[in-house]
Write a protein that binds this DNA or RNA. Structure first.
Lengths: 147, 147
DNA sequence: TATTGTTATACTCTATAACTATA
DNA sequence: TATAGTTATAGAGTATAACAATA
């Protein structure tokens, strides 16, 4: 047992462990979503537009913690691919109202199937639904929703 | 209770929640380490060199999950600031042996103090040491060390 | 005046290919 | 030949400042 390299100091650092775990989970996500060519942020945008058709662009960006300026390129990419459409918000000509196109609706249906399977896989790794809930509870304590 | 925007779909997505929590914790880290001008990766490098003086550059990079090519600029930055030094590995003229300079040792001592205080803060948020251990256990199940 | 979407820009992090000097 | 460090480069993600149209 020749102790060649001791990396144990970082093993107890919560931020470091969060970073590594998040990177790993995102890499798995990327593999599963490669066929749909959807990145995590793109999936989240489609999902929230599906749940909030006609929602305001800035509201959606803020909900995801994405700066307005950075959201522009993201939504434009989805628009160009024909997955989303930007309409006018009734009563405010400045604001964009976001919608899924039929292609976008078909995509989110597929994406949800993949995501649900991935989520089941993660829950299995964690040891069950109780453990998943425990994880989410702890993450919430660490980083409260509006903090 | 006018339900204006429903972002609940993402609340149960483990990857998304990990991402948000990690970003939040890193932001807190940045605030606390602003005075030392150390980013998370830089702190982790100093810590592991302190624990493994003379260690090989590639070994350290691999332990942190950083690609060799990207590690070059990182270690050079610490070198230029006089915190680390690159010597020769005995028996292999290709490899670099990494050390902390006296300034680097002083910095890691300060950094550890800040980090330990931050960790105590996180443990308090989580609800105790048992909850911290539970979180790390769950993260490990999700993303095994060598996976 | 303030807000919405936008542009421009810069900085960090990450990924790949290719070079060099050693092994 | 294979490996360690390096260079160059490109792609994402994120941050700020400023602008036009609208409120």
């Amino acid at each position: 047992m020749a102790a060649r390299f001791d990396a144990s100091a970082m093993d107890k650092v919560i931020g470091y462990r969060l970073r590594r775990a998040q990177a790993y989970v995102f890499a798995q996500f990327a593999e599963r979503f490669a066929r749909l060519e959807l990145r995590p942020a793109e999936y989240s945008v489609l999902e929230l537009i599906a749940d909030n058709p006609g929602c305001q662009q800035g509201t959606l960006a803020a909900a995801l913690g994405i700066k307005r300026a950075n959201f522009v390129g993201l939504i434009r990419g989805l628009d160009v691919r024909g997955l989303t459409a930007r309409g006018q918000q009734p009563g405010d000509k400045r604001a964009n109202a976001l919608y899924l196109t039929p292609a976008g609706q078909a995509t989110i249906v597929e994406a949800r199937t993949i995501q649900e399977e991935f989520e089941r896989h993660c829950v299995e790794l964690l040891g069950g639904e109780a453990e998943r809930d425990q994880l989410l509870t702890l993450l919430d304590r660490l980083a409260p929703k509006e903090g």
